[in-house]
Design a protein around this nucleic acid. Structure first.
Lengths: 190, 190
DNA sequence: TATCAGGTAGACCGATCTGTCCACTAATAT
DNA sequence: ATATTAGTGGACAGATCGGTCTACCTGATA
């Protein structure tokens, strides 16, 4: 990928995260990127494709961060708990690669593009299913029954979504920590 | 409130819920409302005020529905569980007063208006705190310690947000049901 | 009967939107 | 040496944005 293309993607991502997608125009993106409009349209045929590019870039960033983070613990149950400490760092803007917390980009994008068939919405679903797969990788290590593992995975993911949403809407930056005991309760049960 | 004003508010609410706020222009609102532009601007000095009106109207609708719903059970712990059955009805569009499920209007609005000082964002926080107060009313009936009650209330609310977000983004309409056992586990602990 | 609020349709304002196009430059690959 | 690719700045097009305004109609109230 060309330098300019990456610059544009990164700039657009930042703007979309801070202000929302519909609220940011192409003109603002090119101005901030210090790039000619022709250059943007050379790399991206439309705003929609640019949006999808930012979603994919963010998915990459987020997954790499979370995967690395979970490698630092050695027991699968501890990895599940570590997710919520990781979320706490994210909410409190202690993760430089993720930037200042503005909620989950994919949840926010879904709110703006609700048509389940549109490419943007599908990107968001893909990201969430990527995260879910990562969670399941750990859950299945201590849950023999496949159905139980699937359910526990889903429950943990729902808790995670709740923490993210609460941190954004209520500005409760301790939301993830408040779930630690709930997660431990769930893991004890499983 | 005048008939026209209510009509405009209701129409705008439906459009905002279905398409997102930034994606809906004033012209679309007046066309769908079958109302002159002057009439809209007679009742609402700006789009922002109209948005706030739709948020307040939705808050009223939602709170009335949930309060009524929780009156149908007679034990406070059952009321907490009932919340999630109520959510399930909402997700699966079985609640006529709430319309087809498109996620939580307040979460979605927050995604588009993130400035914590702006009136729209504050409306969303107000709604969430209204719901939280209702939950706390029931939780405090079986939780003597005030701090414990506050924490349990918050945890239940976070679970609720997770279910809503998951139902929207992953289109998992069973999200609320998957939490029932988690809630029971929490209530047993408390 | 006079007044006035609430309503109609739609022209109009300046700004902004996405996207196209032109003329030109610089570097690179064949 | 020539062709291609990536880039520049910016004019331009057609549509839509939020919002203002004029001119007119209707029905209730003082």
């Amino acid at each position: 990928m060309s330098d300019k293309k990456i610059t544009i993607t990164r700039t657009a991502l930042q703007l979309f995260i801070n202000k929302g997608i519909h609220a940011v125009g192409i003109n603002e993106v090119i101005k901030q990127s210090k790039v000619a409009k022709k250059t943007l349209y050379h790399h991206f045929p439309s705003k929609e494709v640019l949006i999808i590019s930012t979603l994919q870039y963010r998915d990459q960033l987020f997954m790499q961060w979370l995967e690395q983070r979970l490698l630092t613990v050695d027991a699968p149950k501890l990895a599940i708990i570590e997710i919520f400490y990781a979320l706490d760092d994210w909410f409190n803007s202690r993760v430089t690669t993720l930037g200042n917390f503005h909620g989950c980009f994919f949840i926010n994008a879904c709110a703006e593009y609700q048509d389940p068939d549109c490419a943007i919405n599908r990107c968001c679903k893909t990201h969430k299913s990527n995260v879910q797969d990562l969670v399941e990788k750990y859950v299945s290590q201590f849950t023999a029954n496949a159905d139980s593992a699937a359910l526990l995975t889903k429950q943990i993911c729902i808790l995670k979504e709740g923490a993210i949403t609460t941190a954004l809407v209520q500005q409760d930056l301790q939301a993830a920590l408040k779930l630690i005991e709930v997660v431990k309760l769930l893991l004890r049960g499983g």
